[in-house]
Design a protein around this nucleic acid. Structure first.
Lengths: 340, 340
DNA sequence: GAGTCGGTTTACAACGTTGCAAAAGAGGAG
DNA sequence: CTCCTCTTTTGCAACGTTGTAAACCGACTC
């Protein structure tokens, strides 16, 4: 194993505490001892044992990030931002995949692990009450995107109702009247899906378009295959849609695949909007119109709020609404691209 | 803070060690005390402090995973597998993004952090000697995909030469003769790019097709924009290619985008093969032919080897060659999809 | 020369856990 | 009743670190 303070102290002929003082750049150390100690440190290749430090401080210096899965690009991109933001504050990030399906083993393992982390940022796609129950009661928590229970923790989210409304208005503004929605989920009452559906309905109502339940297709998970399957269902309708709002970009890309494979043109026959602004959508053909949440802002707000809590802030739960933008691309508005 | 053994001991009226024995399911504890202690544990909501445990054991129970970026789907998918494999062995994973560009701050922070982790799995896209230099000398290491220096650590990789050769043979088998390659990188001598280029050239040579340097386009990083730019360059040639081997799927998707935007048909005019088998390629239009590395095998081999090292195994560096498969999809072989 | 003051160095305890060895208790055999 | 064995419980030390407070030292003041 690596050298400890004791080893360095012995070699330099000083006390353990003096070495510690040198390492921590304590002011009152004479130049003579400092250099002697430093020499010993270099010679032994000493590095502080963070575990011991953390024990001393009562902290681990590690925050947890609980995500459904890293395979979903939105979460991967978000994780990237969060790791970056945490790193800037000298914190490390431990990733935990909740996996949607409440995997028993995994739940318990997470619960046990929660003792290692000083705080947790969690994105509960499927509102994961059991998961939360397995955590320490006093664990600082920041929720991403979705409220769990009544105001239990700090929250960062975009305004999902407005976002969905804007996206739908955009489709209606193109003159489309059979606007479908893919991605409904009944699982979580106050969840993201519900809010987006609400925005969708508000836009329809405002435009005087009647709400047709047939055009709202649920999705069990938010992957491409779900979007593809939902789109096949929509195409089989007697009166199929001429536009689709997908509750995330993966669903949209899946739907897009189905449409193109069926020989339909996008956006000429069917226009598509997604949510998330994942990189894939910037390079699909056609490129994907989407609601872009400000991921950097989300990550930084989440990390900032969490670290404030870790440092003892005890105000009532706060809520940050992150910016979002509608990015119009080819899947709703063809400019320049030759498309037969 | 949470309750400690001491608190539980006081409440249950026993010694600290007895509580520890109960927690660790030590055999010789009378039923009476066990239940009394358990009661106290439940009442106080006691959970073991893993930091202290780790200090005691001289281990953190955490392994590091150093990746270029999570935003690259291949790495996100790989991280998912590795986290899963580690979790099955009750280990946690700390992710570090090396970011390609040797970011100074990040390097030092990683170096410091390396004291927290018991081992490191690292995927050095751009062979990161500096990064490695910042690590503890005695840190168990497993390399993914690329050798760093002369046999310094355990290695898991696919047979890149063979993989690239097979992919190129597939393109040649379609009758293509102007086969381009996107993704060359001179940075790392024994690196992935070099090996794949070698496989590409072997296939050309075997088929009696002359090697044309003009058809080999380097890529600074392996993102879609790089592939798109490289493809634009290839299209501007006097004698443009009729097939492209891209050194990863993102490059391929970028190239695909350029081709379609230019009004070319894939695969009719230009066929494309990628490497990695990321989910995006299964749902692009056309779907992407690709070399699929067995990510699960890679992840499990890496975690297994690393944990063996952590547990003290001291044999010379080992090397595991993971399986790969050529998945033929629409970008080289159109079956069923209506394409004008 | 005693007293004081500043900088410098140190011993000790503690963070929460567990291995070790020894102490305490419970039976059972002689 | 003593001795032995086996189970149960305990105290101590240690993992590597740092805060606290006290000790040490040289120099300066009166």
């Amino acid at each position: 194993m690596g050298a400890s303070l004791k080893d360095v102290a012995r070699l330099a002929g000083v006390s353990v505490k003096t070495v510690s003082n040198v390492v921590n750049e304590y002011q009152h150390v004479s130049e003579a001892t400092r250099s002697r100690v430093q020499e010993a440190i270099d010679q032994l290749g000493y590095r502080p044992n963070l575990t011991a430090r953390h024990l001393r401080y009562g902290r681990s210096g590690i925050i947890g990030l609980a995500l459904p899965e890293l395979g979903i690009p939105y979460f991967a991109e978000l994780a990237e931002e969060i790791i970056g933001a945490a790193e800037r504050e000298s914190w490390s990030v431990l990733i935990d995949q909740t996996d949607g399906r409440g995997d028993r083993e995994r739940l318990t393992s997470s619960g046990a692990r929660s003792r290692t982390i000083d705080g947790l940022i969690i994105s509960p796609l499927t509102l994961d009450a059991e998961y939360l129950a397995g955590l320490r009661a006093d664990l600082p928590l920041v929720l991403l995107g979705e409220q769990v229970g009544p105001g239990t923790a700090d929250l960062v989210a975009i305004d999902n109702v407005t976002a969905a409304r804007e996206a739908t208005e955009h489709l209606l503004g193109l003159g489309r009247r059979r606007v479908a929605a893919i991605g409904d989920q009944r699982v979580s009452p106050g969840g993201t899906a519900t809010l987006r559906l609400q925005g969708y309905r508000e836009a329809l109502a405002a435009a005087g378009v009647e709400y047709d339940p047939e055009l709202v297709v649920p999705a069990e998970s938010y992957h491409r295959p779900d979007g593809a399957a939902a789109m096949r269902l929509l195409l089989s309708l007697a009166d199929p849609p001429d536009a689709v709002l997908c509750f995330n970009d993966l669903l949209a890309l899946g739907a897009l695949r189905t449409l193109l494979a069926a020989g339909l043109r996008v956006p000429a026959d069917v226009a598509i909007v997604g949510v998330d602004d994942i990189e894939d959508g910037r390079f699909s053909t056609p490129t994907l119109t989407t609601i872009a949440p400000d991921k950097t802002q989300i990550a930084e707000a989440a990390v900032t709020m969490l670290l404030e809590r870790v440092n003892g802030l005890a105000t009532p739960p706060r809520s940050v609404t992150a910016r979002h933008t509608l990015l119009v691309r080819e899947s709703t508005h063809l400019r320049g691209l030759a498309q037969e």
